[in-house]
Design a protein around this nucleic acid. Structure first.
Length: 486
RNA sequence: GGCCCCAUCGUCUAGCCAGGUCUAGGACACGUGCCUUUCACGCACGCAACGCGGGUUCAAAUCCCGCUGGGGUCACCA
């Protein structure tokens, strides 16, 4: 059997990482079995300005490396892939259902339904709509006056519908628990449960993998599949993603949960994919790092957890660091350039010498650079002559007896060290400490803060060389002036 | 409220279906130490969980029931 999965996002202008994970599971399943992954835009409700929202989704998928075999921009045999353009399919399906007598015209008014709902609430029972047969003369009068009606599915009583869920196991529901549900609104708009079935059937989706909030919809959908005469796809409902340290559903309210946030921060798609895959799925309880190929080779729905997982930013960050270690220097340099440009630290055109300097900074930063945007916090002082002293570092390393004189001595050392490079600087500073009987820490730390303004950073000699002799001496002078004026 | 789903360290999870090898394993985070001029990396060690109560059994994290807690759904939203 060929595996065809799909992800059907609404173009809301926001790509939640929980949704991305669901999409990833779909994509992984399709790739695992050499099948197809279909992207379908669920824009029945969003009338306009979907273009930017769709672009956000497509860009996010491309960034993650989740390619779709059918959908926007690539087309496919079962298009169109925008629900707003599939009206005829829904209309035809609704007509055939009506012809088969499984749906009926509901002329009820909102007031009537509201009253019934209130009665049900008062009696503390679930509200379920049931057909109230219309006398023939009333029906023909309504039809004659073209009275608007919704199309409702007549749920057959006395049945138990069972979903053989690949994650949850068999889940069943008696049809008595279900009300007759609307499939098409009076204005002709198909509702989700109906459109979704028509689309999945027509697109020959074999596995419907979606968020668990849809589990209860599945009974209705199964009824529609059957009425339309289609084979059932396999279903898998994946648990929601919870907030860190809680079982509360992760929402936009929590903050940084949009994929774009992580893209802007400068996360690696490999790290994000690795993280999302392990959120609610595991291979063996041992392996944490997975390449995309390993994921494709080992993913299975059976090993998706049936209980919710909490988003864990710390783990994502760790994974990011692990993936960053494998990134070649050249790629790091290229990746970091746009951030430097965005902050106005370098110009639009990057010259050879500048690139060499960036490479030196990136290399000196080493593992400290966890995300691309870190270049702005950890590497800023290499790209601006403006010296910003970190107050804590100044207090800890510079507010001591004799520091200005120490710095004057170090300034002289820098002025006379030749050639001015890591190797000779290190030798010179060591000799200086020995000669003045000062502990290395008491030399190196003040010098670091005096030249970089920061208490932490790459190796000191790397910093000194990259900054250059003139810049270092100027910074030391500025620091001495600052110390002596306050 | 009815119906349905879920429940192992703070977090991600292994183990559960096929009960004993589980004094519950791995990872993140956290703590300590080593390395070290700072930080990061690395290495070593440590802290830390079967929600509660019954039952079945020689034996239960694993099977059954109840409770508690969390979640979903009951739309002419998706």
């Amino acid at each position: 059997m060929s595996v065809r999965t799909r992800f059907a996002p609404s173009p809301t202008g926001y790509l939640h990482i929980g949704g991305v994970r669901t999409a990833l599971f779909n994509w992984l399943l399709a790739r695992r079995h050499g099948g197809q992954f279909i992207l379908r835009i669920d824009d029945t409700d969003q009338a306009r300005h979907v273009e930017a929202a769709v672009k956000l989704i497509l860009d996010g998928f491309r960034w993650m490396g989740m390619d779709w075999d059918e959908g926007p921009e690539v087309g496919g045999r079962f298009g169109p892939y925008f629900q707003s353009q599939r009206g005829k399919l829904y209309h035809d399906a609704a007509r055939s259902l009506e012809a088969a007598g499984v749906v009926y015209r509901d002329y009820s008014t909102e007031e009537e339904r509201k009253a019934e709902k209130e009665r049900a609430d008062a009696a503390k029972v679930a509200y379920r709509f049931r057909e109230k047969p219309l006398p023939d003369d009333v029906r023909s009068r309504y039809e004659a006056e073209n009275r608007p009606y919704a199309l409702r599915f007549r749920v057959p009583l006395g049945r138990t519908v069972v979903v053989y869920d690949m994650i949850k196991g068999p889940v069943e529901q008696r049809t008595e628990e279900m009300g007759d549900f609307v499939i098409v609104r009076p204005d002709g708009m198909p509702l989700y449960n109906f459109a979704s079935v028509v689309d999945d059937a027509q697109m020959k989706i074999s596995h419907v993998v979606r968020a668990e909030e849809h589990l209860a919809n599945t009974y209705s959908q199964i009824l529609i599949f059957e009425a339309l005469g289609y084979d059932l796809p396999r279903f898998a409902h994946v648990p929601y993603v919870a907030e860190p340290g809680s079982k509360k559903k992760l929402s936009k309210r929590f903050g940084a949960v949009g994929l774009d946030h992580f893209i802007e921060k400068g996360y690696l798609p490999e790290a994000m994919m690795n993280y999302l895959a392990r959120l609610g799925w595991s291979l063996d309880g041992e392996q944490e790092i997975f390449t995309r190929e390993e994921l494709i080779a080992s993913f299975s729905l059976e090993r998706v957890n049936s209980s919710p997982a909490s988003h864990d930013p710390d783990k994502l960050f760790w994974l990011q660091g692990e993936w960053m270690k494998g990134e070649p220097l050249e790629e790091k340099v290229e990746a970091v350039i746009p951030y430097l440009q965005g902050a106005g630290l370098i110009g639009e055109t990057v010259h050879f010498g500048e690139k060499r300097k960036i490479a030196a900074v990136v290399e000196a930063l080493g593992d400290r650079l966890k995300t691309w945007s870190d270049i702005l916090t950890l590497g800023r002082y290499f790209f601006t002559e403006q010296l910003v002293h970190d107050p804590d570092a100044v207090k800890k390393r510079l507010r001591k007896e004799g520091v200005p004189n120490l710095l004057r001595g170090l300034d002289h050392l820098l002025a006379t060290t030749d050639p001015y490079d890591v190797h000779h600087l290190e030798k010179a500073v060591h000799a200086f400490a020995e000669e003045h009987k000062i502990k290395m820490g008491d030399v190196v730390n003040p010098l670091r803060v005096a030249t970089t303004g920061q208490g932490v950073g790459p190796g000191l000699y790397d910093c000194l060389e990259i900054l250059g002799r003139d810049s270092c001496r100027r910074r030391i002078a500025e620091t001495i002036a600052m110390l002596e004026s306050t």
